[in-house]
């Protein structure tokens, strides 16, 4: 479950304006939500709060049943390992192979090498990248890089998956393939939040939506 209660977010200190204002909503465990709104509406900031890359300036954020205001800093890494993130710009590590990029969250979680090999190989098959395990990201197409990013985000079977414009750089066929993978994760029980402004894709896959405008949640449902 994800719960925002009267959340405000301001970058830096001082009298800077809030980029998110009075945001309140609840996402049930195992739900699929679109996060919609024009560029600059605050979608990425909202996702940043969800995957604990940001902390709210005010209000309460509860992620996977954990209210952040009551969590010690030392407890955050454990919670972050239960969240998968697909970034708009992929954020693959260029000096690592596809295999090592996908294996990274498992290594961070302390999984043994012998165990993770099978899981990573399975994830590469699931995303159609099984022939690319030894390739470096720079040699892949945009669609392939996005699928590597998706495989990395879900390889630990996270309880919450957030994706920021995961289809923004892809053509129609590639976008539909990535979305099918996200849907599959939802089917397996993961709470999924996908930020996009591809209204056509949303129309093809109807689901509840959070709609942002100028830092405020203007519609939920």
């Amino acid at each position: 479950m994800v719960r925002f209660d009267d959340v405000g977010l301001r970058y830096g200190s001082g009298p800077a304006p809030e980029v998110l204002r009075d945001v309140s909503f609840t996402l049930p465990q195992g739900s699929f939500h679109w996060l919609l709104g024009p560029s600059g509406a605050g979608k990425s900031s909202l996702l940043g709060l969800m995957h604990l890359a940001l902390r709210p300036s005010r209000g309460e954020v509860e992620v996977l049943g954990q209210p952040l205001s009551r969590l010690r800093r030392g407890a955050l890494p454990g919670l972050r390992r239960r969240i998968g993130v697909v970034y708009q710009d992929f954020r693959l590590l260029p000096h690592l192979t596809v295999f090592d990029n996908v294996a990274l969250p498992m290594r961070i979680a302390g999984r043994a090498e012998a165990q993770l090999r099978a899981d990573v190989a399975e994830m590469l098959r699931w995303t159609g990248l099984d022939g690319k395990a030894g390739a470096l990201p720079a040699t892949l197409s945009g669609g392939e890089q996005q699928r590597v990013a998706l495989a990395r985000a879900v390889v630990t079977r996270p309880a919450l998956l957030v994706a920021d414009e995961p289809t923004g750089n892809l053509d129609g066929a590639q976008a539909r393939r990535v979305l099918a993978l996200l849907r599959e994760m939802h089917r397996l029980g993961t709470t999924v939040v996908v930020a996009t402004h591809a209204e056509g894709l949303v129309a093809e896959h109807p689901a509840p939506a959070l709609r942002m405008s100028e830092g405020q949640l203007v519609a939920h449902g």
Binding site: L93, H95, L96, T97, F99, D100, A103, L104, R107, R117, A118, V120, A121, D130, A133, G134
Partner: peptide, 19 residues
């Protein structure tokens, strides 16, 4: 059987050997 792949840098995700 899972494929054998080049993982020589897998234990250096930060690329510190160059940094």
């Amino acid at each position: 059987r899972p494929p054998r792949v080049r993982r020589s840098r897998g234990r250096d995700p930060l690329g510190l050997r160059r940094a």
